[in-house]
Amino acid sequence: MQGSGIEVLFLGSNFARLLEGLWVTMRISILAVVMSVPLGILFGLFMTLQNPIAKAVSRVYLEFIRIMPQLVLLFIAYFGVTRAFGWNWDAEFSAVLVFTLWGTAEMGDLVRGALKSIPQHQYDSAQALGMSRMQTFGYIIIPQTLRRLLPPTINLTTRMIKTTSLVVLIGITEVLKVGKQIIDVNRFRYPTASLWVYGAVFILYFLACWPVSVLAKYLEKRWR
């Protein structure tokens, strides 16, 4: 292996630092996902309300979050808010906030779609069997909604994990940033460091997202 440059990964505490960087990525995405899912379910239910004000509010929120690039949202939360209101939010807090707002909007839309896709006759036949509203939702509608919801929710999760790489731009040292630091420090001694380091980052991202994708596929098959 002499001269290939792969040993740069194991110099000093380099590998541990990469894992630490990965943990920052995972921490932000896990927090955001954990908050987005319940909030998104509530938002999705809110979107199915017939009330015109509820419809207008949710539409504006959804479109705003969708149209704005996540990077712009991050800049607004981190730099803009400080400028405008003098609130000095910590970078990681800003990141979790932005990803939660984004995840809630996306999750809400998934929930709305799943609820709407349950045909009316499922409600009718549950009621015709004498079920109350609560029983209809508890035994018939929610179990079917969850089945439809799980695969897209897991896809959203992997998208959120990957998109957290943007937080580098508001100064958070996550896995990609650590990689860049390692490459910069070893530029002269190990000119091929970038290949190995970015390769390692690629594998780490893969290891983080792949099990989630496998789970999605498995559930999709089982619940079809």
């Binding site: 004498g130 079920m131 079917q144």
Partner: peptide, 29 residues
């Protein structure tokens, strides 16, 4: 809901619950 138990209804569209097997469809209510 009590009165509906006296009325059995069958619809045009296949209205079984797709996430439950046949026996559970029948015994749920």
């Amino acid at each position: 809901t009590r009165l509906r138990q006296k009325i059995g209804m069958v619809f045009q569209s296949y209205d079984l619950f797709p996430h439950k097997n046949i026996l559970d469809n029948i015994t749920l209510a």
